[in-house]
Amino acid sequence: MILVTPSQALAERVNIALEQQLAQLSRAEIASQALAESRTFICTDLEQAAAISNAYAPEHLIVQTSDARGLLPRLKNAGSVFLGAWTPESVGDYASGTNHTLPTYGYSRTYSSLGIADYQRRFTVQELTPAGLQAIGPAVELLAATETLDAHKNAVSLRLAKLEKQA
C-alpha cells in the first residue's frame, strides 16, 4: 500500500487506523507482512500527488479527496480507479461490474485493465485519396528506401507515377 497525501496529520491518522483495523483481522499476520512494505509520501499538493501516482502506476488507485472526480483528469496510470469515500476497492473486486484482471507492478503505464475489447477481433483500415498518397508518398518512399525495402518503395512509386501520368 502506498499513501500519497499533502497532509502529515492525515498520514498519521491513517497509520493509527491501519493498526486498529489490522488488530481485528482474522488474517492479521498475513496482512501485517503485506503492510510491512507500505510507504507514505507527503507531497506539497494534489498536483504532486497525481504525479507520484502516475509514476507509480498502481493496480488499484483509491482517490479520497473532497473532489475526487475533479482529480480524475490528472490521473493517467492506474489499473482501476475508485473515487470518493463511498467506493472502496472491495466493490470493484466483488460487485460494481468492473473487471478485476488488472495490470500489476506499474504496468498500468502501458497496459489497460482487461475489458470487452480484449475478446473482440478488430483491425485497422486505411484509405487514401490520390491527393493523400501524393502528400505522404514521398515520405513513405524515403523510409522504405532507407530500410532497403524496395518492393514497399515501388508500391508507392508506381502509383505516384500513374497519378503523375494522369495529371
Rank of each mutant, 00 (worst) to 15 (best):
47 E>W: 03
47 E>R: 01
47 E>Q: 03
47 E>D: 11
48 Q>S: 02
48 Q>L: 06
48 Q>T: 04
48 Q>H: 11
49 A>W: 14
49 A>M: 08
50 A>R: 01
50 A>D: 03
50 A>N: 07
50 A>T: 07
51 A>T: 14
53 S>V: 10
53 S>R: 01
53 S>F: 04
53 S>L: 00
53 S>E: 01
54 N>E: 02
54 N>K: 05
54 N>L: 04
54 N>S: 06
55 A>T: 14
55 A>I: 03
55 A>C: 03
56 Y>D: 08
56 Y>C: 01
56 Y>E: 08
58 P>A: 09
58 P>Q: 11
59 E>Y: 07
59 E>P: 01
60 H>M: 08
60 H>W: 05
61 L>Y: 12
61 L>E: 00
62 I>K: 07
63 V>A: 05
63 V>K: 01
63 V>R: 02
63 V>N: 01
63 V>M: 05
63 V>I: 12
63 V>Y: 01
64 Q>N: 10
64 Q>P: 02
64 Q>L: 15
65 T>L: 11
65 T>C: 12
66 S>H: 14
66 S>P: 11
67 D>N: 14
67 D>L: 04
67 D>A: 03
68 A>D: 01
68 A>N: 06
68 A>Q: 06
68 A>H: 02
69 R>N: 13
69 R>I: 14
69 R>T: 15
69 R>Y: 08
70 G>P: 02
70 G>R: 10
71 L>S: 03
71 L>E: 08
72 L>Y: 11
72 L>D: 09
72 L>A: 06
73 P>S: 03
73 P>R: 00
73 P>Q: 06
73 P>D: 09
74 R>G: 07
75 L>S: 06
75 L>V: 09
75 L>T: 07
75 L>P: 08
76 K>L: 13
77 N>D: 13
78 A>Y: 11
78 A>I: 13
79 G>W: 14
79 G>M: 11
79 G>K: 03
80 S>K: 02
80 S>D: 14
80 S>L: 13
80 S>Y: 13
81 V>R: 06
81 V>N: 04
81 V>K: 00
82 F>W: 10
82 F>M: 14
83 L>V: 11
83 L>M: 05
83 L>D: 04
84 G>I: 09
84 G>M: 10
84 G>F: 08
84 G>W: 06
85 A>F: 11
85 A>R: 12
86 W>Y: 14
86 W>Q: 13
88 P>V: 11
88 P>T: 10
88 P>D: 04
89 E>H: 10
89 E>W: 09
89 E>I: 15
89 E>Q: 14
89 E>A: 15
90 S>W: 09
90 S>N: 09
90 S>C: 15
90 S>L: 15
90 S>G: 02
90 S>P: 05
91 V>R: 07
91 V>G: 05
92 G>K: 00
92 G>N: 04
92 G>F: 07
92 G>C: 13
92 G>I: 11
93 D>S: 11
94 Y>W: 09
94 Y>S: 10
94 Y>K: 04
94 Y>D: 12
95 A>H: 03
95 A>I: 15
95 A>W: 12
95 A>L: 15
95 A>G: 13
95 A>Q: 07
96 S>Y: 07
96 S>K: 03
96 S>T: 10
97 G>S: 01
97 G>L: 04
97 G>Y: 01
97 G>H: 01
98 T>L: 13
98 T>Q: 01
99 N>D: 15
100 H>P: 00
100 H>V: 15
101 T>N: 08
101 T>G: 00
102 L>D: 00
102 L>K: 12
102 L>V: 02
103 P>F: 00
103 P>A: 00
103 P>Q: 01
